[in-house]
Nucleic acid binder design. Structure first.
Lengths: 201, 201
DNA sequence: TCACTCATGTAACGATCGTTACATGGAACA
DNA sequence: TGTTCCATGTAACGATCGTTACATGAGTGA
């Protein structure tokens, strides 16, 4: 963990954020960050080792960054955690990191045994982050899956088109749908509760 | 458009459905489908030409396949078009084609000028398909974006985990949300209409 | 001063890449 | 029968890939 190596990781991350992971090769990467392929292999052992360390650092940075928005209140009351999470994810400082992780995730799914152990958890973990903050009335595995899919889909759309306004409005619409469903279910629950009390009395 | 070329396209599609597009190289492809790299270049001009024709054929097959479910009724009444579309997309005969197109879409977004003119429209066009069938009450650009994102996200989740049951339930939940919102808005609309009539009278 | 470790440069290895040159077989048509 | 065009095989080209061998300079503690 020398200073030189950390510096190389920093620069390699910048390079990967720009150029992606799919067609990565050592010599252009080395030339782009002011070193040589020889030194990359010297410090990281191999190309795969470099990618491992870079992806690990990327996940760590995102994890730390996400922690700053983790102090959200419950859904429905105040700003929705989903909205907060969306503002974080669509921030232009975080979005390139997400793009890189999505790319790695895609490659890992396509070619099993590639990077998958560095992505298995905590990479796209804002889904758990959101799901754990759903109110009980609309909390289920399917609903958590839906919330995660909305995020994945909207971020992909944002990455493809760059249309932040439209994707943000789509998320707002989804939050509205969720809120209305929550209100409908709790109203039914209150009615049932009242009915139950009446019978009891 | 010789028979031999069509046969090569068929086999190349099968190969790409299995092995993906990212790390494609001519010699393994040729060996996998019983020909030679020499002949692939002879028939398609270049590797890029081959990918163009293969992706074009893939889109054409999906377009035809999607047309078979295009005779859906309006949302809310009967089976939702989204559900119908989901059953089509998650069919194990169609899913590999979608995976290939998603991969191409990802590469095209990452490396501008790559395949993008072969994907610009009609590739992921079930989004328009769905959006055009939303009832007026919940029809907007944002809502269409949301529906598309739900599809993209759920299909990615299905491709990643293979969990058809959970992703299908998530879609059902979303349809429920949409339906409830539709009912709420039309109810409000009816009340407003009644109020308006009363005043008029 | 000397040995030793770390960092770095030069150059090459074998493999694979997309592509091409050249030759040939075989069918169709004059 | 001869010619012409399509299909195919063999072999190679130059480029690039990840990786490695070897040498050397720089710093550092004994």
């Amino acid at each position: 963990m020398s200073d030189r190596k950390d510096q190389l990781i920093d620069r390699a991350i910048d390079y990967l954020l720009k150029n992606g992971l799919a067609g990565l090769s050592l010599r252009p990467l080395a030339a782009g960050i002011g070193t040589s392929a020889r030194l990359l292999v010297f410090h990281f052992g191999s190309k795969e080792g470099l990618i491992e360390e870079v992806l690990g650092e990327v996940q760590e940075r995102l994890r730390i960054s996400l922690a700053t928005v983790a102090s959200a209140k419950a859904l429905v009351a105040g700003e929705a955690p989903m909205k907060r999470c969306w503002r974080w994810a669509s921030d232009k400082r975080n979005l390139p990191y997400l793009r890189l992780l999505y790319e790695a995730h895609f490659i890992a799914v396509r070619v099993p045994g590639t990077y998958e152990r560095y992505l298995n958890r905590s990479s796209l973990n804002w889904i758990e982050f959101i799901a754990s903050r759903l109110p009980e009335s609309i909390s289920s595995a399917a609903m958590a899956t839906l919330c995660g899919a909305v995020f994945d889909g909207l971020i992909m759309e944002l990455l493809s088109t760059g249309d932040l306004r439209r994707t943000t409005r789509a998320l707002d619409d989804f939050i509205t749908l969720l809120r209305r469903e929550h209100e409908a279910r709790t109203r039914v629950a209150r009615i049932e509760e009242r009915t139950y009390k009446k019978r009891k009395a």
